[in-house]
Nucleic acid binder design. Structure first.
Length: 1123
RNA sequence: GCUCGAGUGGCGGAAUUGGUAGACGCGCUGGAUUCAAAAUCCAGUGUUUUAGGACGUGCGGGUUCGAUUCCCGCCUCGAGUACCA
């Protein structure tokens, strides 16, 4: 009389597991280790829906299977508990995010005032074999202490390219004091000044810090960032989807800000190489490969030619040259970063001649003038073109007068050495096709390029500045949406082709990105479509350097089968040969070299938010300094509001106690700030990926969590994650950053491994099946956009008729509609204007719909006030007022979400069918990696299976437990068992969980048919099923007389002998078409099979008197008769 | 546009060193049981048909005795990416 009371059974075993710590992993064990990890969740207030646990169930099945196989399994769980939603909520209500986060995890009263259970209870109910003793929460100070600690390790490191690893800053200081930075080959900021040892020693500490910062693996720099004004923070590239923020969908603009960055680019190559070592899905590897974006090519430097003088300039030069005024003047001479029109170095006098000048240009000129005056001590005088052309004499007199007054100095010639000048006024480009260098007909700079303002000629100044300004204003999204418009402006300047000496016009255009390569390109219109488009649009010549290729319509970008021509010393070479030769030539000339370029950018690490890890950094003389690690964690301060300050500082700017006292080594009140011992702390916090980049190591440690992030013993034993399951949305975020941190930690000897996750599986999303009720609206003949709302809902079939414009000739229906409209809002005159109907589909809560897609009208009416008097028209076009007619909803597969009312809660499923049913059904739905719709109706199948399984063990009187100890009669039961063992083991090893659920069903169907009750069969079966349905397995195992948990019982061993068959049901085909089957012994030879088949009466029948041309026999498989 | 993945009954899906297409489950149909319902059990269920068969794994070709599986060309859907020089 014992039925399958799943609720009792499940509660009982969940309690047993918790009490006995059944799944606690040991750090000291003789067993081989196995580490199964799920991507940990952000504990949102919305709780779990059935899509969330899919991956956890899969990993749990695997973890349990591994325990049966004798492994010491680490299968932990925790929470990525810093993050935006809690903070957004805090901003709205003032509740501390720590509080709401805790409620979301542990339960309590949630933000809407409802009692909620929390994540943990929901997870527990599904029967996972997690070792909860190792739980982590990234927002706990005990945890983020170590996130801060790792940050400081990065701060204390630089990347040595020669050794190809990270080293400590201390070692860098030693190198600087012994040999300066001349020989250092490091990944660092661009344009670092050169110094020798003695200079280094003489630098002030602040200066030293400034220099070191340019080498640190995490550094502070003014960078162009993605600023999201609505969220009030910067976002990383991977946090932006389609030009808007991933969370919230707010617009993002480019902005220059001082930010912490991570020098992930140092690891670009190793991150790429490491992909070969790990067993990850190919699409995921591909997206990392694309994100890193390695391309091989060369750099080339193009010299910028001095501008040709304007008419006015030429005229004035005529009067100044050759010491005509008694002093030596120079034309178009570089001073500091600028080229001035004329200069007398001896008198430090600069003369500028301008065209028509605009207001904004004046401001820029003022800036430039100020710089030249203040920094270099020059006097600047200005004339406009008209002055020079019309009143030359007055101009000369003015100049002479000033020359008289100015003191004389020494003409030291060039303001700075010639090669440095070339350096400053040359354009460096990166190209993947150096072989096409003779096809260059122009250059294009990104509008943001530094050189733009320096080289633009007076005539082009206005156009260029307008363009630059317009580009800066365009949001990222606009720029992305509009890639077809070709735009650009000529700067008026020219570059010199390094080999042909040709003059190449220099343009600016927004198709050249400031952030990639050098922000400048050599344009080869015959070989690059974008250059081709640009050249065509602006009528720039398109020289052809490919032999016998037509480039009049489009560029030829192929590399194969080309012969270079019109290219001087590269003529008649292939791509391969030409690339090699030109690279050598560039290197010999000293104007370029072969180079590998990466698309990957350094990762911005600052967020202007409250709910994240504080940086353990204070500022002294504007330089960041680390808080000594022994004083970590640096705890988040209390603030009265979670918004940015009125002056635009991040929320931490509101903290009143947020200064670091270097004497007391503690956080003190801001009022003690003295710039001597007490300094302000960093106001930014770390991004979401900080805590998740190393948490897998934290789980390894159980005992010494206060002393270390993870002990050496633990790290050595557990190594890395053997199996990691999670969503593919983390491809270029978490999964890339984690790999970066692990490689770094490995370099610094902190962890023994180079890759965090050996095998990774992406689980597919579980989609919801939304239900729709169809609301009827009338269309007005006079106003096409005006619709007459009704409160009438039509059933699915009726809706299809209306939508597909099929006339629905049913008077009742029309009368109902018109009658309703009349009574509700409008008069007859308007009804007459209604020319047709259309439908608005409304999401209805899936819980109001039964498995036959029938809407529960009563509940629906009560669900909202506005539906109270709704009229429903049935499938047959009749108003529903009794139970005879049905209202059928429409169904559509969509993402599962609250707003679509299609969320299915796992708690409800557990309540109604049990956790084992939920687990089995989630696995049964389809392949783990694939997206698939959830359909609650189908769950009865697996639930019925569990009932059937239960019954198999309860064949005694009144359905009592019964087991026979006598061996099974006949081989049937054992054959079924071993077939199932083989299949299930193979399936689990291949992560094909859906098919093993099928084989369980087949097994139970077969055993039930046989009325099998043999212990020899049913005992192993209980173990077999325990990874999938652990509660029922424990219960049966217990009833079978075991006092220990089934969880470590050895997995049944497959034995071939039970599967050996003596005969085979051969399919007999004629010309490839199967006609009948014939059972034959398996030990027959080919000839014997043939004669047996040919002798069969049906064979003759199908041959219809023909003689077979050929008989194909594959023993054990098939017979095919041709002819 | 580029990269990757996928197209099989009414639905979720199974089967690939090429060998009986549609396992298993849902749904549907009929039956048993029941006063009735639920639950349970039994049978049937790709399409079509003149009941022998014919057709059938997105479409069109090809290789083969035999193709869902291999090759070539297309179509559709989904995911990622966005001027990367």
């Amino acid at each position: 009389m014992s039925k399958y009371h799943f609720n009792e059974i499940e509660a009982k075993w969940q309690e047993y597991w918790a009490k006995n710590q059944t799944f606690k992993a040991e750090n000291l064990s003789d067993k081989p280790k196995y580490y199964v990890l799920d991507m940990f969740p952000y504990p949102s207030g919305a709780g779990l829906h059935v899509g969330h646990p899919l991956g956890y169930i899969a990993s749990d099945v695997y973890a349990r299977f591994k325990r049966h196989q004798g492994f010491n399994v680490l299968h932990p769980m925790g929470y990525d508990s810093f993050g935006l939603p809690a903070e957004q909520y805090a901003i709205q209500t003032g509740q501390h995010p720590a509080e709401t986060t805790k409620v979301n995890i542990e339960g309590g009263v949630d933000k809407n005032g409802n009692e909620i259970e929390g994540y943990r209870k929901q997870l527990d109910r599904i029967g996972f074999s997690f070792d909860w003793s190792r739980e982590v929460r990234t927002s706990n100070p005990e945890y983020y202490k170590w996130t801060q600690w790792i940050f400081l390790q990065l701060f204390d490191s630089w990347y040595d390219k020669d050794l190809d690893k990270a080293r400590s800053i201390e070692e860098l200081r030693i190198i600087f004091s012994s040999e300066g930075n001349v020989k250092i080959n490091a990944v660092c900021d661009e344009g670092i000044e050169r110094f020798i040892a003695s200079e280094w020693i003489d630098f002030s500490e602040t200066k030293k810090q400034e220099i070191l910062l340019k080498y640190r693996l995490t550094y502070l720099a003014e960078t162009e960032v993605n600023w999201c004004p609505q969220l009030g923070t910067v976002l990383a590239n991977d946090e932006i989807v389609n030009g808007v923020s991933e969370r919230g969908g707010y617009p993002v603009v480019r902005k220059k800000m001082k930010q912490w960055s991570m020098r992930i680019t140092a690891y670009a190559q190793r991150l790429l190489d490491g992909l070969n070592e790990i067993d990850w899905p190919q699409p995921l590897k591909d997206s990392q490969t694309n994100w890193i974006g390695r391309s091989k090519g060369a750099t080339v430097k193009f010299k910028v030619l001095p501008p040709t003088p304007t008419q006015a300039e030429a005229k004035l030069w005529g009067e100044l040259r050759g010491k005509k005024l008694g002093y030596k003047f120079r034309q178009q001479h570089p001073i500091d970063n600028y080229i001035v029109d004329f200069v007398c170095l001896e008198k430090k006098l600069i003369i500028e001649v301008d065209g028509e000048v605009h207001q904004y240009q004046l401001e820029k000129d003022d800036e430039r003038e100020l710089l030249l005056k203040e920094k270099k001590g020059y006097k600047v005088i200005r004339f406009n073109n008209l002055d020079v052309l019309n009143n030359l004499q007055t101009v000369i007199s003015k100049i002479e007068a000033i020359l008289q007054v100015l003191p004389s100095g020494e003409d030291l010639g060039w303001d700075f050495p010639k090669d440095e000048l070339d350096e400053k006024f040359s354009i460096e480009v990166f190209t993947t096709r150096p072989d096409t260098i003779f096809g260059v007909s122009f250059m294009v700079l990104a509008p943001e390029h530094d050189l733009v303002s320096k080289i633009t000629t007076a005539e082009q100044k206005e156009a260029v500045e307008n363009y630059v300004e317009a580009t800066a204003k365009r949001s990222e999204r606009e720029r992305m949406a509009d890639v077809k418009t070709i735009s650009g402006v000529f700067t008026g300047a020219y570059a010199e082709h390094p080999f042909s000496g040709e003059k190449l016009p220099i343009w600016i255009g927004d198709y050249v990105l400031a952030g990639y390569g050098t922000g400048a390109v050599m344009s080869v219109p015959c070989g690059d479509q974008r250059d081709h488009d640009f050249a065509k649009h602006f009528n720039i010549p398109i020289p052809n350097i490919f032999k016998d290729v037509d480039i009049s319509e489009e560029a030829y970008s192929g590399k194969e089968n080309i012969t270079i021509t019109n290219s001087d010393f590269l003529n008649d070479l292939t791509y391969q040969q030409a690339t090699e030769k030109i690279t050598t030539a560039l290197e010999e000339k000293g104007i370029g070299e072969g180079k590998i370029n990466y698309r990957l950018r350094d990762a911005v690490f600052s967020r202007q938010r409250y709910w994240g890890e504080p940086f353990p950094i204070y500022y002294k003389d504007g330089m960041p300094h680390a808080i000594p690690t022994e004083y970590l964690p640096l705890r988040l301060p209390e603030v009265e509001k979670y918004l940015p300050t009125e002056t635009g500082e991040p929320p931490l700017g509101r903290a009143t106690k947020w200064h670091w006292d270097t004497k007391k080594c503690s956080v003190v009140s801001n009022q003690f700030a003295d710039q001597e011992n007490v300094f302000p702390l960093e106001l930014n916090t770390m991004p979401g990926w900080a805590g998740s980049s190393w948490y897998f190591f934290r789980y390894m440690e159980s005992e010494k969590r206060d002393e270390v992030f993870a002990s050496k013993e633990a790290l050595d034993y557990w190594q890395n994650v053997d199996l990691y399951i999670g969503g593919s949305e983390h491809a270029t975020g978490h999964l890339l950053y984690s790999r970066f941190w692990v490689k770094f930690m490995h370099d610094r000897g902190l962890v023994p491994v180079e890759e965090p996750f050996k095998k990774l599986i992406n689980q597919g999303m579980i989609l919801g099946e939304s239900a729709f009720a169809y609301k009827l609206v009338g269309l007005n003949a006079n106003y096409p956009n005006f619709i007459h709302n009704t409160n009438i809902f039509v059933s699915k079939t009726l809706r299809n008729h209306i939508v597909h414009n099929k006339e629905w000739k049913n008077d009742d229906f029309l009368n109902i509609v018109k009658g309703n409209l009349k009574s509700r809002l409008i008069g007859q005159s308007i009804i007459d204007k209604i020319v047709g109907f259309t439908i608005i589909p409304l999401h209805v809560d899936v819980s109001l719909v039964d498995i036959h897609n029938e809407l529960n009208i009563k509940t629906f009416r009560n669900s909202r006030e506005e539906y109270k008097n709704a009229i429903f028209i049935s499938e047959n076009g009749i108003v529903i007022d009794n139970n005879n007619e049905k209202y059928i909803v429409g169904r559509e597969v969509e993402k599962m979400s609250k707003s679509k009312y299609n969320v299915v809660n796992p708690d409800d499923i557990c309540e109604q069918y049990g956790a084992d049913t939920l687990r089995l059904y989630e696995m049964f739905l389809g392949p783990l990696e694939q997206a698939k719709p959830w359909n609650t109706a189908g769950i009865t199948g697996v639930h019925g299976f569990l009932k059937k399984l239960w019954k198999l063990y309860h064949s005694g009187e009144n359905e009592s437990f019964y087991m026979s100890d006598t061996p099974p009669s006949g081989a049937g039961g054992l054959k079924t068992l071993h077939k199932t063992i083989k299949k299930v083991q193979e399936d689990i090893e291949e992560f094909s969980f859906n098919t093993s659920v099928s084989s369980f069903m087949i097994a139970v169907n077969e055993l039930s048919a046989e009325k099998c009750n043999a212990r020899e069969v049913l005992e192993p079966l209980a173990i077999l099923i325990s990874p999938y349905a652990p509660h029922i397995a424990e219960e049966l195992w217990n009833k079978l007389g075991h006092s220990e948990s089934v969880s470590t019982a050895p997995f049944p061993k497959f034995e071939e002998k039970y599967l050996v068959e003596s005969s085979k049901e051969y399919p007999i085909s004629f010309n490839g078409k199967m006609r009948f089957t014939l059972e034959l012994p398996l030990d027959l030879s080919k000839d014997e099979i043939e004669s047996a088949v040919m002798a069969h009466e049906k064979t003759a029948e199908y041959l219809e008197g023909r003689t077979p041309k050929k008989v194909i026999i594959v023993p054990g498989k098939i017979v095919n008769i041709v002819g």
